[in-house]
């Protein structure tokens, strides 16, 4: 059991339903729609009095608690599988940025900027829109998800076509 849960990578047909189950359990037990990106607005709401962040969705206490659990989940998975290690390595991006930590930090920060702006503009991210939103058949969630994928596929392949090798 330990081997299956912690050691072996989960196949898609186990991981996907597990994510859907967490969504369902959270709705059933806490009555909340799982979503991550709004919590970044909640952090801004703590630090800023701007009108945008005064909307009630940024003032719900549970959101910060939820996202606080995410790194803990990653830590438990890392410790359980024995793969936890503090590292600045980041897969194939290391080769693309020629081992420059500064370049990597720049790409990741720029990517984060687009993710943050895009998520607020779209009204959600792959958790709130792509999983919970499409599960409810919401048009905005379907359109946003097509955007996530189309934008991602286009920019990723352009990035590696220009800077790869």
């Amino acid at each position: 059991m330990y081997e299956i849960v912690f050691m072996r990578p989960w196949p898609w047909w186990a991981a996907g339903p597990a994510l859907g189950l967490v969504v369902t359990l959270m709705a059933w037990m806490a009555g909340r729609a799982l979503g991550v990106s709004t919590a970044y607005g909640s952090v801004c709401a703590v630090a800023s009095r701007m009108s945008f962040f005064s909307a009630t969705e940024y003032r719900e206490g549970w959101r910060l608690w939820f996202v606080l659990g995410l790194p803990v989940g990653g830590l438990l998975a890392g410790l359980g599988s024995g793969t936890f290690v503090l590292t600045t390595a980041y897969g194939e991006l290391d080769a693309l940025t020629r081992g420059s930590l500064l370049a990597k930090a720049g790409v990741l920060f720029a990517g984060g900027l687009c993710v943050g702006w895009g998520a607020r503009s779209a009204g959600g991210c792959p958790s709130g829109h792509s999983i919970v939103g499409i599960a409810q058949g919401a048009r905005s969630s379907i359109v946003a998800t097509v955007g996530f994928m189309a934008g991602g596929i286009a920019v990723f392949n352009l990035l590696y076509a220009v800077f790869g090798r």
Partner: peptide, 14 residues
Amino acid sequence: IFGAGWALSGACPG
């Protein structure tokens, strides 16, 4: 725009 950021960072908010 989110997709572009996802491609650059390989990550999303969660």
